[in-house]
């Protein structure tokens, strides 16, 4: 089975790209889909209805969604393999731009919206740097100059990432993504899959619901206004 991991900020067009993959590859592969989100998600129901494929979702609630995604990924692979899927697509919530949910033995795809502005790739460095492919969506809406500068900005962050510009609603340009999926290797040994990098994943006390302001009230990785380095305090 092949594993695709989609990341990217909300509204970038992750699901639109997934739809195109399903449209084009459903005839040749049996595809399963997992959506990870925080409180609500509808993608699993929509895709199940539209393409009649097995789908699931996980809500992370108070926990960081990428953290949740990594915790459930091994189970998800087992679920999809039991179903006999040829491809498992995992779509992240895309809330935290500091996260890199990509793993070994998978294809990491970051979806970026060209509408986000030419500086947006610079702000999402960690999410782009370890991806294999950067799909830039909504390119039909922006000027030629911005299209070119956007590509350069992605290159600055990730010199080797494969950049694919698309209007995902029409699926233009996605042939290169489909080619990459057709040519990628299958999972060799699911138990050996690890995260590609050291992501800044954390379940912080604020995420967990502590509302007090000031580092004095929190634990884990902390920062003070004057302190140059992070400090760690356990509880």
């Amino acid at each position: 089975m092949k594993l695709l991991i989609f990341a990217g900020p909300p509204s970038a067009g992750k699901t639109a790209v997934v739809r195109q993959i399903l449209r084009q590859l459903a005839g040749e592969s049996f595809i399963a889909f997992l959506k990870i989100d925080v409180v609500r998600a509808f993608e699993d129901e929509e895709l199940k209805k539209e393409f009649e494929i097995p789908t699931r979702k996980v809500y992370s609630g108070d926990v960081c969604p990428d953290h949740t995604g990594i915790l459930v990924l091994r189970d998800a692979i087992a679920w999809a393999e039991d179903l006999g899927a040829g491809i498992l697509i995992v779509e992240s919530a895309g809330l935290c731009l500091r996260c890199t949910p990509y793993t070994t033995q998978s294809l990491g795809i970051v979806v970026l919206s060209a509408v986000g502005g030419t500086n947006s790739p610079l702000k999402m460095t960690p999410m782009i740097a370890l991806a294999d492919i950067a799909v830039v969506t909504k390119v039909d809406l922006i000027s030629q100059a911005e299209k070119e500068v956007f590509r350069e900005r992605v290159r600055e962050v990730a010199p080797r990432v494969d950049i694919i510009e698309t209007n995902a609603v029409h699926g233009t340009g996605l042939r290169y993504l489909l080619k990459a999926i057709r040519n990628m290797p299958e999972i060799l040994c699911a138990d050996d899959i690890v995260l590609k990098g050291m992501p800044p994943l954390a379940v912080c006390t604020i995420c967990a619901g502590k509302k007090e302001i000031g580092w004095q009230h929190h634990f884990g990785i902390l920062k003070t206004l004057d302190g140059a380095d992070d400090l760690y305090r356990g509880e």
Partner: peptide, 24 residues
Amino acid sequence: LITQNTKCLADLTVLEFLEMHVKA
């Protein structure tokens, strides 16, 4: 390709926009 929807999104002056393209 220029469509009805094609726009410059960045908040730049006309000259800065053209400079950005010429530089790119």
